[in-house]
Write a protein that binds this DNA or RNA. Structure first.
Lengths: 339, 339
DNA sequence: TGTTAGCACTCCTGCTGATTGAGTGCTAAA
DNA sequence: TTTAGCACTCAATCAGCAGGAGTGCTAACA
């Protein structure tokens, strides 16, 4: 579709614009060492690229900036993998070196480092509890009317839920139920739990099933923790460092979006698709039509269980972000599988 | 110190500025119904008030705006309590009506409502666990090397901590220890726990104290959960709606501050002092010298255990904010004491 | 003596028009 | 096919000017 020279010029323009944030003119490109053509030639090519939809002109006498289509072509065809510097790799490795940390802490550090290294906003979706295995169930009565259900996973995650006790139930009965559950359901993965829960109990104590129904429901609820609690965000204010976001109005919409976990979750695509890049208008949410989102998954036992990503301006250092994300996702997967 | 008329004029100026965000001139004041003087008279008084440090002039031919000292006088002497409208009271009452909610949820709703009703940023410091009483301790081994310590309070809060098991310890020994702790320490308030922990154990099992020292340490750690996890924030972006914060630079510093929980905690003063108001330069943090912070405490059994507050521009609707904060703090205290 | 009308003065704000300069598109020549 | 040259466009900048809001001061008035 595009000639070699056009690709070269498009690449040069995007590169330049990413670093300068100014529309780039033909002379700037022709001066670059790797381009051996005069500004007039570049101008002709630029006009063609604009006609094809890869470039845009803010106004008649300005330089060109990449369109969404232009970025897309750049990302799909022109980008070359950027290797992280030795210093950066060391920094990242250190993050994963300290195994003593609780996994939650590793996730938090990941988010922090991700934002710090890229200077964009990092978003992290914690591991789905789905793949975890049950280690322990406990019900602690607080008083005559209330109790807390506690569920521990094999990775050391603890979920809990406060609930009202069914009237007239005996403490001893609860204990019996919990003991039974613990003996039968230990090491069962969460995705099987719902099914097994009723199956195991049904055989043992058909008699007063309805008695326990309420409690079983609560335990079931504890398994499926609120999705939006999985979201972690760092460096939300980084976007303000970008010259094209000097305007409070633009920034406000973005930051308001980031305050809503349920919407942030929707920035992540399907976890099974590896590295995903959504550029500018490719995003469905109005607030971030001038932003790009790059996400990728990390894995447990070969299955994607969580995601990490970056939100930045469309004028983003794509190749660097991709490298860092890739490195961190692999690191996380490794840690997760070792536990 | 100030004459009645000066107080009246200062009050009018602050009121006006709070709602208009524009420097207010003498004519504006003299036109108000409650003021019976000509603009010239007002001008003289204004000049005096400026000399006394209560007002400032952005430039020679502009109106006056209140100085920090001016706001301080306004807050301390001029403000009159604003009663919430029936609609607002209903709205707030509804928040507390639904007792089924977990206390954490009430705290979250409080933060949300606080921000929504005032249109400023709300900051909430969750209840100090200090005053809670122990209900249950549990240690769940995950594998040969690791375990999770779980502590449940009488209000249904669950704290947990992952830790490495001391080598060579028997599961049965742990169970014995936990059983002992549960039988001896139930209903002991957290502030006594550290002391009682060693006291109770020492009598029973002097023999292998050093064996258990590590585990006791972990349990102790679980009591004193990280302070910064207590912070909850809502409506961080509200500040951007204020005309004096249209500038990204100003806003950035504030939002960066709000991203750091440890710094947000420092916005709260001592919990024992009731309603606290820090205006503009009275704040120590550079980023919020153009903001005001109002905080107050909520109580459990007569003791302050947590705080709620508002961060907004110095040009804040003080009387409204104070009313809402007061109402919510009392509501929270009531709920907390009923559980 | 306190209040106020009047007036000169200051300074911000918004508008206009001229200038500059970066960058373009087109044409004609190499 | 490439490129030098040139006319053209348009945003950005700045000086200059008018308008207006608001002040401080003075002198007159009750």
């Amino acid at each position: 579709m595009l000639s070699d020279r056009q690709r070269m010029i498009l690449n040069a323009i995007v590169d330049n614009y990413i670093h300068s944030a100014e529309p780039v003119g033909s002379r700037t490109i022709s001066k670059r060492e790797d381009i051996g053509f005069s500004s007039a030639t570049i101008r002709n090519e630029m006009a063609d690229l604009e006609e094809l939809g890869y470039l845009e002109q803010p106004h008649t006498s300005a330089g060109r900036i990449p369109s969404t289509k232009g970025y897309r072509f750049y990302v799909d065809n022109l980008i070359q993998p950027q290797f992280l510097s030795q210093v950066e790799v060391e920094k990242l490795k250190k993050l994963f070196a300290d195994r003593i940390h609780h996994f939650e802490q590793v996730i938090e550090s990941t988010a922090a480092i991700l934002s710090q290294m890229t200077n964009y906003t990092s978003i992290v979706l914690g591991p789905e509890i789905f793949e975890h295995r049950l280690k322990h169930i406990q019900i602690v009565p607080l008083n005559a009317a209330q109790a807390v259900a506690i569920v521990v996973t094999h990775t050391g995650r603890v979920e809990n839920k406060l609930f009202d006790l069914p009237v007239g139930i005996q403490a001893s009965e609860i204990e019996k139920l919990v003991n039974l559950l613990n003996s039968r359901l230990r090491d069962v993965p969460f995705w099987q739990l719902r099914q097994r829960l009723y199956q195991e109990i049904a055989g043992e104590m058909q008699r007063n099933m309805e008695q326990y129904a309420e409690i079983l429901q609560v335990i079931e609820d504890s398994f499926s923790k609120d999705e939006s609690d999985r979201v972690l965000l760092r460096g939300a204010t980084k976007i303000m460092e970008q010259p094209e976001f000097r305007d409070v109005e633009k920034v406000k919409d973005i930051l308001e979006l980031l305050e809503q976990n349920d919407k942030v979750i929707r920035l992540f695509g399907s976890p099974s698709q590896g590295m995903q890049i959504r550029i500018g208008q490719e995003n469905h949410l109005e607030a971030i039509k001038q932003c790009s989102v790059i996400t990728t998954s990390y894995y447990l036992e070969g299955k994607p269980v969580g995601m990490i990503g970056i939100l930045g301006p469309t004028r983003m250092e794509y190749s660097k972000v991709i490298s860092v994300l890739d490195f961190l996702a692999k690191g996380l997967s490794k840690i997760l599988n070792e536990q």
